[in-house]
């Protein structure tokens, strides 16, 4: 990459790096070395404990049959094998429709619903955070209150509403209910409250930007960490969501359903179940890495310099 850069670019990069280094100068006054050391030590210890289940799933998926039967289960593997993964294709015969269909459903539903949720939720949050329309306070209070109501008791009324809308057994039954999640609106509203100065919106208006334009090209870039994080939350939940009582057709079911079918069959059940779990983990991890690495790398820049 370095080679393809022009000299001017290289100079600019160096300047940027210097600026970034200067930025952290204040830390010389407010941080101590022993403190830094303690933090690192503590975080690594705690972090290792946190990855334990994920580590255990991965390790177990590579265990041969005899090691799977050892009790209590070991946290290491002596002779790792990919046997569990290799038996997975033969278990696919237990599925009613080809695996690709489940995979398509999962990807389609997760991506479309996440996109719509983030868009619709952010637009609503912008209106609640940065405008003075009548009724916004009440709406926001209701949004917050709804987060505290037990969702199990809402299932029957929701079921009746789905039935009346005629969205049973369609993709809409996955997508529509996922769009108006109050958590997303709440998160975006809180970020917009703090991170979008009113002066910035005023300036955009004076420059002739319309309301939607201001939201899209002024507000949203300023809360990038928030909607990246929301994308992750939404994708993670939708990816793991097994089809509920609203989906009957096999062609419309998602991967978690197929995964549980596979996990329940085969000789080395536990190994296969873990292999499936590990494979199912990959997409959320990828989304995590893509969104969070750009969250943690944004040099927090407020719009006003």
């Amino acid at each position: 990459m370095e080679a393809t850069m022009s000299k001017a670019d290289a100079r600019r990069l160096k300047k940027l790096k210097l600026k970034a280094a200067k930025r952290d100068q204040y830390k010389r006054f407010t941080r101590t070395k022993s403190g830094n050391f303690f933090y690192t030590f503590f975080l690594i210890l705690f972090g290792m404990f946190s990855v334990l289940p994920m580590y255990y799933c991965i390790i177990t998926s590579f265990k041969p049959l005899d090691e799977l039967l050892v009790f209590p289960p070991r946290f290491y593997v002596i002779s790792p094998t990919v046997e569990s993964y290799l038996t997975l294709p033969s278990l696919l015969d237990n599925l009613a429709v080809p695996l690709s269909r489940y995979a398509f459903n999962s990807i389609f539903v997760s991506v479309v619903a996440t996109f719509l949720h983030v868009m619709v939720g952010s637009a609503a949050a912008y209106v609640l955070a940065k405008t003075n329309i009548p009724g916004k306070k009440i709406i926001f209070t209701i949004v917050q209150m709804s987060l505290l109501y037990n969702s199990y008791t809402l299932e029957i009324p929701r079921y009746i509403i789905y039935a009346n809308m005629g969205i049973f057994d369609t993709y809409w039954a996955y997508i529509l209910p996922a769009i108006p999640s109050s958590m997303g609106v709440f998160l975006m509203k809180q970020f917009m409250d703090t991170n979008i100065p009113d002066a910035l919106i005023e300036a955009a208006k004076i420059d002739g930007a319309g309301s939607f334009r201001t939201f899209w090209s002024i507000a949203m870039p300023n809360v990038k960490p928030a909607w990246l994080t929301l994308t992750l939350f939404s994708f993670r939940d939708l990816w793991a969501a097994a089809p509920g009582s609203t989906i009957f057709s096999e062609e419309l079911k998602t991967l978690p359903f197929a995964a549980s079918t596979i996990a329940q069959s085969g000789i080395a059940r536990q190994g296969c179940a873990m292999a499936v779990t590990v494979i199912m983990m990959i997409p959320p991890i990828l989304v995590y890495l893509v969104t969070q690495s750009s969250v943690t790398q944004t040099m927090s820049s407020s719009g006003i310099k």
Partner: peptide, 14 residues
Amino acid sequence: MLAPFFVLFFLFTV
């Protein structure tokens, strides 16, 4: 801008 959220929110939660 608020409508898509509010209509669905009203239907599925309120």
